[in-house]
Design a protein around this nucleic acid. Structure first.
Lengths: 317, 317
DNA sequence: CTGAAAGCGCTTACAG
DNA sequence: CTGAAAGCGCTTACAG
């Protein structure tokens, strides 16, 4: 009926009827029902499904903040899920979220099981993969997921080369693995390449934290006391390592040089600024949201968006 | 039809037909449509709307993490929105989220405009207010929002009394205000009461951060050089203040004693542990989700859930 | 500019 | 145990 037209802001009615409809709606306390609207129409919903590995820590929660702010401001509602690095959890979550017929989907770019890959490929809605750019980016097709992120291998290479230019000794790495996969493996690969020698690697079965960085450093240094350079999965762990060294009287960077990744806030509050690679996480989220919605609206959009990174030459190395 | 019954796991069909239905569904790649299900049924959806002031920082994002994990594990999908401390933004967001007919709503407990209060009261779905317990909690009615949080006034009193027992000099406070409202005002009130004297208060028009704590402390100390005790809105700001003092050669706690709030991770990695009040943020989220869903299912539930807090006697005061 | 008809994909209530 | 009917609150396409 005509009421539908005025309520949803279409045209084809007179001012008089509009006012009448609006008045009645007001009086009756009308609340629109997007569920019915979604079912009745063949156009897409305003729901966007977002599956992230975690949200409790600085990295992904700032990405989420960027996503949320852009999506909301464009009139979309995010449905968010935390799926860890667990293929089964991701699969389950995708299925329950997809049943709400979102108009688009955000996932974290990571190694994924065949089954989950096929699920993603079978979707008719736009998908964006966050955070990691892949090796296959040159060969992207229009039907592939969009990508917004950075080249983590290049981050590692850059940091490796920087430290190589200043130090000569053995290098170590403290990171984390989940279900057999090392997080940030691309950066570690790159680092090894950039530093130009084998890196003593310790992968903890733990979540990244100050504490993990602390005891990981303790473990690694007691096994390999002559390490000259320590690279970490992220700044939190690097700061943990820094604390360990300070407490043991190990001089930074005199005895050991330390570098992290992320440009998290902690790094900047230390008495000596942490050497790290800064990444604009908020921007990842915002750009992802923007590109996704462009694709939803069939506007032209970059298949791959590289947000880059920036080496912060701190005082810890 | 019968297919509907087996697909949604109701009963009243034979094994044979079930297998047949499942096989066909599989072959056709059937994806359930919760939108249609929601419209066709008068039972509640599995959507839960969550409106938070921020998600980019440790406090609320750990609450969100708790909410998300519990809700997802119980089969609900969270729609999340960031509304700042802005009544208009909250109002707009609530209206768009409510149009999806969520079965429940989570909001942050805060001072709210009359209009938003009436909106909340007019809802027929369960609502939970997070974080702040109110003064009116004794008089809660069944129709009022649930509450899960803590008594921030008591936090302030406890910290004030603790510091009073150790120091005598003037006290200062560095916090933040948004749109005229001081965040954490209840804690400040309590602190003043507990410490037993007027507290020099600096409210920055900024968001809480290390940096805000740093320059806020600088400002406050240059205006009031004889402060003996500094209390902060949260641990991030306290750590910023700590950094400022260290850099200026002010001895902690010899010259100035410092205390924060939250029990955020930063506080634990410092060379000297921060005095603060620890709050189990994850638990706030989890309990809120649990109670909300109990209410959705019409099970008995505590109207007010006090998760308490814990004074951490650190080395900075 | 306005409205009656049909349908979106389910579910509930009822009849076989 | 199985199915045909009606309806959820909208929208789209068509007729006045």
């Amino acid at each position: 009926m005509t009421a539908s037209r005025v309520l949803r802001g279409a045209d084809g009615y007179s001012e008089a009827t509009r006012d009448k409809v609006l008045a009645v709606a007001e009086r009756l306390g009308y609340v629109p029902n997007r569920i019915a609207a979604a079912l009745g129409s063949d156009t897409a919903t305003s729901l966007v499904a977002i599956a992230l590995p975690t949200i409790g820590r600085e990295l992904y929660n700032q990405i989420l903040e960027g996503l949320e702010s852009k999506l909301t401001s464009m009139g979309y509602q995010p449905i968010v899920g935390v799926v860890g690095y667990d293929d089964e959890a991701e699969y389950q979550w995708l299925n329950s979220a997809l049943a709400w017929r979102p108009c688009a989907l955000v996932v974290a770019g990571r190694v994924r099981s065949q089954r989950n890959c096929s699920l993603l490929q079978s979707l008719s809605i736009p998908v964006v993969e966050l955070w990691n750019l892949g090796r296959d980016d040159k060969a992207r097709k229009r039907s592939d997921p969009l990508r917004v992120g950075l080249d983590h291998h290049a981050v590692g290479v850059q940091m490796g080369e920087y430290l190589r230019s200043r130090y000569r000794g053995k290098a170590g790495y403290v990171g984390v693995k989940v279900g057999g996969h090392a997080l940030g493996a691309d950066r570690l690969d790159g680092f090894e390449k950039g530093y130009g020698q084998k890196v003593q690697t310790l992968l903890l079965k733990d979540r990244s934290s100050f504490y993990a960085g602390y005891y990981g450093t303790e473990q690694l240094l007691s096994a390999e006391p002559d390490l000259r350079v320590l690279y970490y999965l992220d700044d939190n762990m690097a700061v943990g390592g820094l604390m360990f060294c300070q407490q043991k009287g190990v001089k930074i960077p005199g005895d050991v040089a330390i570098a992290g990744f992320g440009g998290l806030d902690v790094g900047s509050i230390l008495p000596s600024q942490l050497t790290t690679t800064n990444v604009r996480r908020l921007k990842v989220g915002k750009l992802a949201a923007q590109n996704l919605i462009k694709r939803v609206n069939n506007e032209p959009v970059a298949l791959v968006e590289d947000i880059g990174f920036e080496l912060l030459k701190g005082e810890t190395s």
